[in-house]
């Protein structure tokens, strides 16, 4: 290592594993960051091809808020930018009271 200096034991183990055991390096990092468009709890609406939620590749909670806030995807949720800026006003903490989110009628 020329640019990073391992300080703790995990870093030293990764530096060693990197050289001769790429599989071990992978194993040393068994937990990971999310793969999907949302990193926060966001109550969801998606269904899989059977109409249920079991087959979704991500938890259904992933997407609703992200579609609402920031996503370009033309989803069936109100958008915060122009039409429904106060849609989630009744829902201060989505984890606690996501069911407070109201229906809207365009």
């Amino acid at each position: 290592m020329n640019h990073l200096r391992p300080i703790n034991r995990k870093a030293a183990a990764l530096a060693r594993a990197r050289l001769d055991q790429p599989g071990a390096a992978r194993a040393l990092m068994l937990v990971d960051t999310p793969y999907g468009c949302s990193t926060q709890f966001a109550p969801g609406w998606e269904v899989d091809s059977s109409g249920g939620t079991y087959g979704l590749c991500q938890p259904i909670e992933r997407d609703l808020y992200d579609c609402y806030h920031s996503c370009y995807w033309p989803a069936q949720v109100p958008d915060s930018l122009t039409n429904f800026p106060s849609w989630t006003k009744t829902c201060g903490s989505p984890v606690q009271d996501w069911s407070q989110v109201d229906l809207v009628f365009p």
Binding site: H3, L4, P6, L14, L28, M29
Partner: peptide
């Protein structure tokens, strides 16, 4: 957070 490693960085890194 992925590995728990602590490293010192140089300017390039």
């Amino acid at each position: 957070a992925a590995s728990g490693a602590v490293v010192a960085l140089d300017e390039t890194s």
